[in-house]
């Protein structure tokens, strides 16, 4: 369950979002987001029976292109913003033991 009496189970949601929060942040965000959620509750007064959801303002169809190679970034360009790289690869902490 993601909801406690204040509105949001902040630990559960922060874990899903992969953000570590300080205790101070947890307390502050819980209160503030509680206010926002309370405001949003107003939507429950709207009758949406038979209404289709809108994901985009204009109807979109999938767009295809020919599967042909086009010029892309060089390895140097692709890695220029990497926090750590070695031998044309991004260095990351060990994922498997």
């Amino acid at each position: 369950m993601a909801k406690d009496e204040n509105g949001i189970d902040i630990d559960y949601v922060a874990n899903l979002a992969r953000i570590s929060l300080t205790d101070e942040e947890k307390e502050r965000f819980s209160g503030q987001l509680g206010d926002v959620l309370e405001y949003i509750e107003k939507l429950n007064t709207v009758d949406v029976s038979g209404v289709e959801p809108t994901a985009h303002a204009f109807p979109l169809e999938n767009v295809w292109r020919e599967d042909t190679a086009e010029p892309g970034f060089s390895v140097e360009t692709a890695l220029q913003n990497a926090p750590a790289s070695r031998r044309n690869m991004v260095v990351v902490p060990k994922v498997v033991e």
């Binding site: 369950m1 993601a2 559960y12 979002a17 953000i19 965000f29 503030q32 987001l33």
Partner: peptide
């Protein structure tokens, strides 16, 4: 940004 990512994650989370 943290607040909005948390709120966005919450409204998309299972059950909500």
């Amino acid at each position: 940004v943290k607040r909005r990512v948390i709120l966005g994650t919450y409204v998309l989370s299972s059950g909500y």
